[in-house]
Amino acid sequence: MANSRRVEKVSSLIKREISQMLISEIKDDRVGAGMVSITEVEMSGDLQHAKVFVSIYGTDSAKNETMEGLKACTAFVRKSLGKRISLRHTPEIRFVEDSSLEKGDNLINLINRITPKDNPLTEEE
């Protein structure tokens, strides 16, 4: 139980620190600070690996370019985390695109397009 709280705490800390790096430290032009947000960080139980989920706003080509930029700065992010967070070993970082927000928006748009006449459950017999 205590280990899961530690993993959660470290995940939260890593999310905050990387978010701060995106705003002020990562200089790669492909990573637009206003276009990227960290949605979640999943840590392995041994704190050796961190999967950083990012939501990227923009076209598919912009998203691909941003992911390339994030992957290119992975070593910088890990090194910076090592200086900011006191852990025995700095975890390996892996950026993963999180498309759940986009899927949610699409689902809401589909639901909003349904009118009562299209829905067989609301029709009177």
Rank of each mutant, 00 (worst) to 15 (best):
A2Q: 15
E68M: 13
T115I: 11
T115W: 02
L101F: 08
V54R: 04
F53S: 06
K117L: 11
S19R: 06
G104N: 15
L121H: 12
E65P: 08
D46F: 03
V10N: 05
V54H: 02
Y57P: 07
I56W: 00
R5T: 15
F53H: 09
N109E: 14
V77W: 01
K9C: 10
G58C: 04
E65M: 12
K79H: 12
L13E: 10
T115R: 09
L13S: 09
G69P: 04
D98N: 03
N64I: 10
R30W: 01
A75K: 15
S61Y: 09
N64L: 13
P91T: 03
E40W: 08
N109V: 13
G58Q: 02
I93D: 00
L110R: 14
S12Y: 08
I26W: 00
G45A: 13
R5K: 15
T122V: 15
A33D: 06
K63R: 13
R16V: 08
E25Q: 06
S44Y: 04
T39C: 09
P120K: 09
K9Y: 08
P116N: 02
E42Y: 14
S37H: 11
F95Y: 03
D46G: 05
T66H: 05
M67R: 03
V7H: 02
I23S: 06
E17I: 04
G32P: 05
S99L: 12
K51D: 04
I18M: 02
I93K: 00
S100G: 04
T59K: 10
G45Q: 12
V41K: 04
G69T: 07
S19H: 00
G34W: 00
E123M: 12
E123K: 15
G34D: 01
K63F: 02
G104C: 14
N64W: 04
D46H: 06
V7G: 00
R16C: 05
D60Y: 07
H89M: 15
E40D: 12
E124C: 10
G34V: 03
V10S: 05
E68Y: 11
V52R: 02
E123D: 12
I23G: 05
I18A: 02
R88K: 13
R78Q: 06
I18K: 00
S11Y: 03
Q20E: 11
R78S: 02
D28G: 00
E97A: 09
R113A: 10
S61D: 12
R6P: 07
S86W: 13
R30L: 02
N119F: 05
K117M: 11
S12D: 10
R78L: 03
S86I: 13
G34F: 01
V36I: 08
A75P: 13
I114N: 07
N109T: 14
E123A: 12
L87R: 08
L107Y: 06
T122W: 09
E68T: 15
I23N: 07
I26P: 01
S19P: 01
C73E: 06
I26R: 02
R6G: 08
G69W: 00
T74F: 01
H89I: 15
M67H: 02
